[in-house]
């Protein structure tokens, strides 16, 4: 593999290989929990935490884990950190934990996290793996934050629970519903493609 500057590993996750907008990975929590910016941020942070910790361990153990059981090992490692995140949220932020519901445990099967282990952490050195995980996590969080902000502002007229729209604004209920997530995500992906195309030409 051609060596890139290490910082590239971080930056690529933010835009060029953004897990949500470009790789279209991990869409299940993306679509399900982004009703409010708070949820989106919490989900992003939880996923980032799991991603970084698992990447750390997987990268550390990459020469130890036999090839045949690598997926099983990754899943156990990921599950451990997901459980940690889940319990922490339940213990310290019960409200968020309740509204995220089963989607925190479902991070275990989030393809973005498993994908990064398989595609990157298991093949790269510790430092790069951590940077990659951080970049991907940040990209994921950012995308979720934008998505959930749009949905919360239009769907509930608030942002992080604060009233920000004018008084006569009538909320677009559909934005709080699953179709709103698809619509917003579709528009975001379209916008990202449009910008990329313009950058190329």
């Amino acid at each position: 593999m051609k060596e890139k500057p290490a910082i590239q590993e971080f930056i690529k996750g933010l835009w060029d290989e953004n897990p949500v907008l470009v790789q279209l990975l991990g869409l299940c929590p993306t679509l399900a929990v982004t009703v409010s910016a708070e949820n989106g941020l919490a989900m992003g942070v939880a996923a980032t935490f799991v991603l970084v910790c698992s990447s750390f361990l997987v990268s550390l153990l990459r020469n130890v884990i036999p090839n045949q059981v690598r997926i099983a090992s990754y899943i156990v490692i990921i599950a451990t950190f997901v459980t940690i995140a889940d319990r922490f949220l339940a213990a310290y932020t019960p409200e968020i934990s309740k509204s995220l519901g089963p989607f925190i445990p479902l991070i275990i099967v989030n393809c973005m996290i498993l994908g990064r282990q398989e595609a990157f952490a298991s093949k790269n050195k510790l430092g790069r793996s951590l940077l990659d995980a951080l970049g991907m996590g940040a990209g994921f969080t950012l995308a979720l934050l934008v998505l959930s902000s749009v949905r919360e502002v239009l769907g509930s007229g608030t942002w992080f629970g604060m009233d920000i729209m004018w008084a006569s604004f009538s909320t677009w209920k559909v934005m709080s519903l699953p179709p709103g997530a698809f619509l917003t995500l579709g528009c975001m992906i379209a916008a990202a493609n449009w910008i990329n195309r313009r950058r190329q030409t």
Binding site: L61, P66, V69, A72, S73, V76
Partner: peptide, 9 residues
């Protein structure tokens, strides 16, 4: 390896 990982977990 699996045992160690599981024990750790």
């Amino acid at each position: 390896v699996l045992t160690v990982i599981t024990l750790f977990s």
